[in-house]
């Protein structure tokens, strides 16, 4: 595991996040420091309440820490206004969720294209890139199917294509196999494992130790703290 700064895609430094105030304050995350490097295939694992969802929100620039600093590609995002944070999110991060979160009235291609909207792209170019992304997850032939016409595994692959089409630096997957049967789960994990590259990291947030152990690096959490950070392969 190299610690060369240029390789660090994202860094959390002494990050804490609390909800509520006064007596009712809940510390979801305590002084967490973590670096995500290009080429990483990391799993963040922990039981419910361990703070991994909070971690996901922060890693995904969906939330701001109460204290500490988060940098994405060397850019400090902690103090950024919502619009600027949204921009960083759109440029650097791709999301895959347990519940897929596809837009029901759009077909597979339309769902993938949604990630490329408002980016000043010509429709033809957007379409082409989206088709490529769908083909990459093996769903090129089902581009005109709506979510209801697709199986769970296929839906999650469409979500993967949507996350990939923006060429994000970090692919964040939240329990990506949680709603899938074993066979589809294995298929999705296989695709995920092949997605990290010299420029990209794949981060899986899960409570499933089997899934967590299939990653190259495992970060274990408990009670809002990182309790271990081990390289498995």
């Amino acid at each position: 595991m190299s610690d060369v700064m240029s390789d660090v895609l994202m860094r959390l430094e002494g990050v804490s996040r609390c909800y509520g105030s006064g007596e009712a304050t809940v510390w979801a995350l305590h002084d967490v420091t973590l670096s995500i490097h290009a080429g990483d295939f990391v799993s963040i694992v922990g039981p419910s309440g361990s703070g991994k969802s909070t971690m996901l929100g922060l890693l995904g620039c969906l939330d701001s820490p109460t204290s500490g600093s988060i940098t994405v590609g060397g850019v400090e995002v902690t103090g950024l206004a919502d619009a600027a944070r949204t921009h960083v999110r759109g440029q650097s991060i791709g999301f895959v969720f347990q519940q897929f979160h596809l837009i029901p009235h759009l077909d597979a291609l339309g769902n993938v294209e949604t990630a490329l909207l408002y980016r000043d792209l010509k429709p033809a170019e957007r379409r082409e890139r989206s088709m490529e992304s769908l083909e990459r997850v093996g769903l090129g032939h089902r581009f005109d199917h709506r979510p209801v016409q697709l199986s769970g595994g296929e839906q999650q692959r469409v979500a993967l294509a949507r996350a990939l089409v923006t060429q994000p630096k970090i692919l964040l997957a939240d329990e990506p196999t949680g709603a899938l049967d074993t066979r589809n789960a294995a298929n999705v994990m296989e695709i995920l494992a092949g997605l990290q590259s010299d420029e990209r990291a794949v981060v899986i947030v899960t409570h499933d130790t089997d899934i967590a152990n299939s990653a190259a690096r495992k970060v274990s959490m408990l009670d809002g703290r990182i309790v271990s950070d081990e390289v498995l392969r």
Binding site: D82, A83, T86, R89, F95, H101, T114, L117, Y118, R162
Partner: peptide, 15 residues
């Protein structure tokens, strides 16, 4: 949920 995913994909509040 659609709005949430759009926001996650980088669509701003204004959009």
């Amino acid at each position: 949920s659609e709005i949430g995913i759009r926001r996650a994909l980088g669509h701003t509040r204004k959009i």
